[in-house]
Design a binder for these strands. Sequence first.
DNA 1: ACAAAAGTGTTTAGATTACACCCATGA
DNA 2: TCATGGGTGTAATCTAAACACTTTTGT
Lengths: 217, 217
Amino acid sequence: MGLYKKHPKHYVAVDCVIFGYKDEEIRLLLYPRGFEPSKGGWSLLGGFIQERESSDQAAWRILKQTTGLKDIFMEQVQVFSEPGRDPEARVISIAYYALIRIDRHDKNLVRENGAHWWPITKLPSLVFDHKEMVDKALLKLQQKAGYGLVGKEMLPEMFTLMQLRKLHEAIYQKELDPGNFRKKILSFNLLKRLNIKNSSESRKGAYYYQFSDKKPN
Amino acid sequence: MGLYKKHPKHYVAVDCVIFGYKDEEIRLLLYPRGFEPSKGGWSLLGGFIQERESSDQAAWRILKQTTGLKDIFMEQVQVFSEPGRDPEARVISIAYYALIRIDRHDKNLVRENGAHWWPITKLPSLVFDHKEMVDKALLKLQQKAGYGLVGKEMLPEMFTLMQLRKLHEAIYQKELDPGNFRKKILSFNLLKRLNIKNSSESRKGAYYYQFSDKKPN
DNA sequence: ACAAAAGTGTTTAGATTACACCCATGA
DNA sequence: TCATGGGTGTAATCTAAACACTTTTGT
């Protein structure tokens, strides 16, 4: 029994890299730290794991408490556990990333906390090792985008292929060939073309698409 | 300051999926658990993170204490944190995998602990969620093998391309075309051919190779 | 008429796969 | 000489990348 007792216990936190998409840019939701150390420095959304919750549950809880969002795609990035990473105390942190539709969060909740959506290309400097968390998370996001699955989390229900391409361009931070992108994305058989056109972003008008529920072949 | 204090602390452990290679099979080093709960059940090598060490350091320390091995390739798999995963106490565990040369470990240390090398294809049932850790670790190992880098960790200094191929076949658990494997592996420019032949495993004799220090082009 | 995006098609290069084939040699 | 792996080469297939071209329509 008591064999575990001789070992130390640790604070275990979760830090969330929250990706949103707006104005053809990937943005990160950052918070000014409300307490020392590094009070006022920009920080990822974080919180501590409680007694009876998994790290996944903690990540969801913290995201929901702070942004009002639930049922959000989140995935583990990796653990950061250098003893000195937080100068105040020894905290082991599990980094997560979340993909959200930027227009859907509770803007009042976010504003109250002084949070701000920063373009990924112009981030301020971050506290502790949070920049490293962001870099690792972005790599994971790029991987996920390779499977054509990010539009489902970050775009409205319906979208044109140009809108989807702009999203991918923001994620990879480089331009993609429109024709090749179209063929590749459609080859996944994840999208269903609707009989509705968007005529506001081009003369000719582009069909709207949505993710189809059924599994691809 | 004391803002962290209201949060609970947790036992944080490291569990190591230790991969070795022998007799054309990938093997896992498993330990009979020495204490309750699940005393006697087969378990990954594990241990608790101490006050002033990172999870990487803990993984290395535990591997060295238990097998005598140091300077070993290890990589994080992911965190397992379901509150009920260990029935004795709430333990958050970070899974790692390690690649070792099976003939190099301290056999006495391992024997003392009752540990056993189990072929990956014939594993006994494992305690807690350790089977899940193994599955995730194997996926990571397969990914790493795709870059041609596993021979460096798991084979002797010198090896023939057939030996390297047998290793890859054991990792993917399927046969690979000898000609295609040879071309692909050599195209990485990671290997240097030696002027020594192994004549014991084929009539014709095969050149030995080793990993070259210099970076590939 | 023209610009700009929508949408389709073509060409090339590179990688992957499935084999065919000759070589060397111990039994 | 024959079976076995060593080693090389080739054709078929698939993919990604670059880019030409035609369509549509608001201004």
